[in-house]
Amino acid sequence: MTRLTRVRSQASADWRSFTRRRTAVFFTFFFPVILIVIFGALVRSDPGGGGLFSEPPAYYVPGYLAVVVLFTPLSRLGSEVARHREGNRFEKLATTPLTRGEWLLSQTLVNTVIIAVAGLLILALVVALTGAEIALSVWLLAYVLVGVVCFCGVGAIIGSYTDSQDGAVAASNAIGLPLLFLSETFVTLEQLPGWFAPLVDLSPLTYFARGVRAASYPGAETGVSGTLESVTGVDPAFGNLLVLGAFALVFFVIGARSIPATE
């Protein structure tokens, strides 16, 4: 109950702080919308054609969702940690009962709500603008939740090891952009050099993309050679969530421990 009270107090303060930064709120929702409009409505996919966007529109749903599930926690947590450090807020919090894990949990909860709302907007836009046929399932919610936990942990690590807000945002972009395009989101594994495949497997976003695709895209090709489901035979929606969950646990713990409590 005590822990709950602390997390609630922190999350409430975080929520108010975020919603009162109007530009941050606007661009959190506007950024994925831009991408959907550009790639989904203007460029359009060309199923069966060559090059990029040669899959049906529903194939790219994990990519659009990844824009917010990946980038929002990376940039928000990165800059939030830097802001807290610059304002000596961690020094203050270190002398209160709030632990670093609770602080990160509070931030994660706020991000989950923001990203869940943004995710709904994205799904609606993808369907409306691209005509994608997607299946809604509770797996999507689970993937968003676990993905946010994972990337909030990564964001906390970035914020803890960069020396300023600017540095945190730059590092977030430098890490996020390659991950976004090279994790079976917008670019299929077949379009990448063979030697690159092991690197794709190291990205937690890959398991997010595969799992969301398995859960939302009825025509998704599963059991591709080398993937988890092809080796273990488990339901890809479940199996990929397990792997993503393991990444989330590791990054959350490292992220929480990275947050500065002492000089």
């Binding site: 107090s9 303060a13 108010r16 702080s17 304002g87 000596n88 807020r89 209160t96």
Partner: peptide, 19 residues
């Protein structure tokens, strides 16, 4: 020390009290 700038004085004290 510089707390969250977009919270009011009352909200900030309630926030720290809530910890």
């Amino acid at each position: 020390f510089s707390p969250q700038p977009r919270l009011s004085a009352r909200e900030l004290l309630a926030y720290y009290a809530g910890l």
